[in-house]
Design a protein around this nucleic acid. Structure first.
Lengths: 216, 216, 216, 216
DNA sequence: AATGAATGAGAGTTCATTCAT
DNA sequence: GATGAATGAACTCTCATTCAT
């Protein structure tokens, strides 16, 4: 259903002159969705623009019309994924709630089984696609800052152990998440919901305050 | 250095034919080394048998002579890498020393800067190459058992916190390692030796016994 | 003559890109013609898509654009040849005229010296290409039914001997034709028009009614 | 079991001095047998020297040692097959018995299910391998003379119709056989023994003398 | 704006052949 | 006499990209 452009992009009741703007963005989004689906299914190495076009219901030419080349498609895909990620994490950021952060992060998995596979394909490939690498670096740095800030707040409140600098702690916990992301698509049976919950609980235990240490 | 037999001194290094002195296993190892190097440099997606052959100093035909097809090459590569990994971890296994385990694991990085990049490429691709996936699954399971056993021993001795089951702990710590492996090739500056040491110290702190809990 | 659109008069015939005016079916036919020509000239074993493309004036990619793979090309070729065959035999079918049938069949030879060589290559190869085999089987069965019917009509009219079942007779005569087809490309001098005519006359003699046998 | 040469090339107890002669010829024969088997199974186009070597239990080098190149292998194969054919037909030749001739020819089929497939592959390919073509031409010419002679004898005796020159009749009947040979590997179910017998009977009926025709 | 025919390079793979051993 | 490592060209097929329409 790509060619639905019935929705005027600004909701004009009367006007709607000329071509509907926003169409462009919507079609790009649709192609990106198809791209994610193809990458999840076939892996980055075997994902071709042809397959993406086919899955989106477009022609080969259309894909290269909306994205100058494969690199642009891939970077746009990464960007859109991170945007979604950020949006999802927003509540946790606002409340500085570490538990909520991890639960939201977990929700990405259950909500969209393609999310992690696609992300791990993009991350692993980033090393060989500078444009992609720079996007990921920026986004990860931003996420790292957010994560650190929440941990620091927790340490200040005494809800998180403070014998390890928040910065290091953030690195460790983020790595744990990345590691799971990488292994998840590959051994999904090891990541059923109840086990993932146990893992997250264990993380919270791991970073809980140590009795008799530090102090308000 | 595949062309070991005496080249006519002063003459053109003519194309090599016929039966050379070389040793089958050694040649395979040489090609695997070249394959690792190409994968590290160009990524799995762009690593071709042609490039591997070129880097090894052979022709394309020679590579497919030693490895029936790409799949066989890749699985042999994974296997050889895991063998190396296992050999390196042996001392830590023998002594059931968790700190040594992490330090040895860290040494893989400093010892061979290609090790992690290659591994992360193989792991990420495994999902789409069943033969590769099965190898990794087996090896990971073995490593996971070893890791769990060492942690259990530590818990029994009171050197590791026992409020989290060793099995879960192993999962978390292994994931951390995998996460670092994935991010390392991509943000190497974040993983200079001193920082990695700090990370490992922090891990040890994280799993250190909690005063006032459990105990003999 | 694929490059139909106006080439700059007097200019270099630049490589052709973009959407040309051509007609899909016509292009396929052109490629099939080239394929037939290559098979006739080099034999099935040495006929490659490259050669076919070259002979058609296209690149390799163009051939695989019009035919997903070699199997599809070959089966399409067989199909088109049989279509031509059927069309040619139609008048004989309509009149149930056995002599006309053989003469038309003979005309295939004189009309297109490639027809028999190509057919015999395809037939011989069919055993190892199931898709091709199934096409040939169907078409041959149809032709066999037609042939049998005409012979039966002849037997009923008393113009063909009836001491051998029409079905067996059809098998024998078809085999004769196949045998000639196979030997023709290989000993063409034995098949000059006058000799072929003599052979056909002899066939008609062979199946002429036997005096003193059966009959009304 | 090619490497049976348990006899030390100098340790014969009594006779058998030097290398056993005939060894060479025997090994060639073994390779030829393997070649026939591979051609029957995979078709000429996909029969490779590697597969032949493998099936014979030899090394790749051995095949090219015994046969300078593929062409020589193929022509030797054809020659050996024709020799076998000739030997089989010898009794029919000696007795000038046409029925025996066809029955012997039929026996080739039931005796060795590979015979016809291999032959039809070689015949079809002969057009593109001059050396092979010349062998076949010679052998076919010889067979044609034999066939004609037997038919002539039959005509003289009044056991075969004489309203068609023996030469033309031979051509027709040989073509019938070739046609069956070509179709047999490809529709074997149409050639069960009882049907083949019916076909041969019908041939004999076809060439039986015509009452009221010819002379004394 | 969008198409889809066509390119041309490069992928994995196969192969007959060569030749030092 | 026989081996089997290695070549190098050719194979089928895939792909990102271009561009006349």
């Amino acid at each position: 259903m790509p060619k639905t452009n019935a929705s005027p992009p600004g909701g004009e009741p009367v006007a709607q002159r000329g071509r509907p703007a926003g169409d462009h963005a919507a079609k790009r989004a649709e192609i990106l969705k198809a791209a994610a689906s193809v990458i999840a299914e076939d892996g980055y190495a075997k994902a071709s623009l042809r397959k993406v076009a086919e899955r989106a219901g477009y022609t080969t030419g259309a894909v290269t019309y909306y994205f100058a080349n494969k690199e642009e498609l891939v970077t746009a895909l990464a960007e859109s994924r991170f945007d979604r990620y950020d949006a999802m994490l927003e509540p946790a950021r606002a409340k500085a709630d570490i538990k909520l952060l991890y639960e939201q992060w977990l929700a990405m998995t259950t909500g969209d089984p393609e999310y992690w596979p696609v992300m791990s394909q993009l991350l692993t490939h980033a090393r060989y696609e500078p444009a992609l690498a720079s996007i990921i670096e920026q986004r990860y740095a931003r996420y790292h800052r957010l994560h650190t800030k929440i941990l620091e707040a927790g340490q200040a409140q005494g809800t998180i152990r403070d014998d390890i600098p928040a910065d290091l702690l953030a690195d460790q916990l983020a790595a744990m998440g990345d590691g799971w992301m990488m292994m998840f698509p590959f051994e999904p049976e090891r990541f059923d919901p109840s086990r993932v919950e146990a893992l997250i609980d264990a993380v919270l235990t791991l970073i809980a305050p140590i009795p008799g240490t530090s102090g308000s």
